[in-house]
Structure formats: C-alpha cells, structure tokens
C-alpha cells in the first residue's frame, strides 16, 4: 500500500484514536508506576519532573497527530471522504492527547 493509499483506507480513521489510546494507557501506567517507585517524583507537593516529562511527551504525541491530520487533509484523493474524515479524527485525537497531560503543569504527581 502506498503512502497515498493509506489515507484512502478506513484504517486511517482509527490511526488517531489508536495512538490516543496507547498514549492514554502509557500516561496512566507511567504515572502510577512512578508514584509507586518514586521515579522523578521529588516527594514534594509541587509539579515534579515526571509531570514535565509526561506533558512534553503529550505535546509530542499531539504534534505528530496534527502532522498526520495535515498530511491526510492534503493527500490527493479521488474520493475525499475517508482522507478528510481521517484528518478530522486525527486532529481531535491530537487535542484529546494533549489535554489530559496538562493538569500536571499545576499539580503534584502523587498526592
């Protein structure tokens, strides 16, 4: 399947949400483990390094998904439905990936 072909395929509709799901699981798992094991937590009641790391990765995931949305939207297409829809879904997933990591900027990780 060519690159252009991918956005024609309905699987591309699921790209964004699948990335979001994986990211969400990773976010929850890493945070929980970090709190249990004390990785980068600094013990305090202020945002810790782990939060910044997670927020950074969240931003990265969101940017990748936005790039995907952009490519999908611009992909040449005889039938625009699936690429366009994929683009919108990816963009929504980008937002959904970014926001959950943001509370970490003002909160302590493990209380």
């Amino acid at each position: 399947m060519t690159r252009r072909g991918f956005w024609q395929h309905p699987a591309s509709l699921l790209l964004g949400p699948v990335v979001w799901s994986i990211w969400f699981v990773v976010l929850y798992a890493v945070l929980s483990l970090a709190c249990l094991q004390g990785w980068l937590v600094n013990g305090g009641d202020h945002p810790a390094a782990i939060n910044l790391v997670l927020a950074g990765v969240g931003l990265l995931v969101a940017m990748v998904l936005m790039a995907a949305a952009w490519t999908a939207w611009r992909s040449p297409a005889e039938t625009g439905f699936i690429p366009r829809t994929s683009a919108m879904v990816s963009a929504c997933s980008a937002v959904a990936s970014l926001l959950p990591a943001m509370p970490g900027l003002i909160m302590a990780p493990c209380l």
Partner: peptide
Amino acid sequence: IPQMAQAFFSVASMLVAIP
C-alpha cells in the same frame, strides 16, 4: 487514586462532551 491521575480522567470525561 493519586490526584493527578484523577485529573486526567476528569479531563477525558469532559472531553467526551465534545463529540
């Protein structure tokens, strides 16, 4: 559950309001 984990579930719960 740790407050921050609750916070992102809280955010996700509100996100579902968008669709």
